[in-house]
Design a protein around this nucleic acid. Sequence first.
DNA 1: AGACCATAGTGTCAAAAATACACAATGTCA
DNA 2: TGACATTGTGTATTTTTGACACTATGGTCT
Lengths: 205, 205
Amino acid sequence: MFTIRDQQLKLLLVQRAGEPYQNMWALPGGFLDIDEELEACAKRELEEETGIRGVYLEQLYTFGSPNRDPRERIISVTYYALVPSDRLQLKAASDAADVQWFALDQIPPLAFDHQQIITLAHRRLAAKLDYSTIAFQFMPETFTLSELQTVYEILINGNLDKRNFRKKILALKGIEEAGGLRRTGNHRPARVYQLKNPERVDIIK
Amino acid sequence: MFTIRDQQLKLLLVQRAGEPYQNMWALPGGFLDIDEELEACAKRELEEETGIRGVYLEQLYTFGSPNRDPRERIISVTYYALVPSDRLQLKAASDAADVQWFALDQIPPLAFDHQQIITLAHRRLAAKLDYSTIAFQFMPETFTLSELQTVYEILINGNLDKRNFRKKILALKGIEEAGGLRRTGNHRPARVYQLKNPERVDIIK
DNA sequence: AGACCATAGTGTCAAAAATACACAATGTCA
DNA sequence: TGACATTGTGTATTTTTGACACTATGGTCT
């Protein structure tokens, strides 16, 4: 689960309670129920560990090397999720210490092959930036164009030209003015926008 | 497993010997051994049913709806493969009748949710055409630019301008002259090319 | 040997898209 | 009411993409 917070791309990790890899950090996850859809399982596990639901979720890859879990053969069907920054109140179901957001460049050593999973998810996310509107999934219900630009700049880790960025984004026709202005300091307030189809990730170009 | 044959994109199907869905056509596949890598399993099953190996193979998606197999809960980690047209001698391990190539628009009713899997694979292949050199995986060891163009035209189901196509392909720097000419009829012979990195699929642009 | 045939191979111009770039407008705050 | 900080806007240049037609070459036939 990715989010953007404190001007950084962050990732949710949980601290393992039991063996193996006790006390190490790991990706949230768990076992599939016998009559459960794969995606439903991912959503359930995420909600159980974080209380968050209704976020963008996409199947990433299935990992199944024979010895990736020391106990027994485990196949992991992995998903990644994107959460808008205004919805990351965790703690509905878990206590503070064992679930935490980590900046992507400050990930501690992880249990199992979870670092590899993160690397793949990050690459996928970066790739999708170029040809989809996936970045919109990080935005709260309403936002300004400057806020959106900041999100893009964090994701690509570089600067963008304000005029060109606005031209490109508005040409996508994916957002519309929500009406009203956002006041955030002693300067001109910004127009507020919203997604036309909040659930939808479009492929562009 | 996709290939291009008779100027068409074709797909390999096998006819089921036993229940359920007896005698219906289905995708090649089988069960994972307990100590087997997922990708090794896909390769093994493919080779067992077709005798073909060493082809481009990529994990597609994992399907796991509770009732997709009437017998019991089955999770299918699916892969798709691309085979050059000069390597599709089947029959190493199977008899003629129960393994066959089908044009993509002439797929018979399939067992399980296999039609859905094919649809996804086809979409993925089409998408990758735009931003990778995946189409090269359909080419035999050596080929002419006209042959390559024909493959692209079949895949996108449309015509391409010869000069622009050549410009674009050569700009990718992925192929080089193999030396020599290919004579195929009463007309000027064509230069022969080969991939610089036959295994590699590059992401472009 | 020469004519004809079929496909290979090649360059330029126009249109569209991407990029670089600077200043006026507006609400807040002191 | 003036200073401040950020919003919002247009044009010119470069790059990329797309349209388009003729010559080159070896084979085949007479």
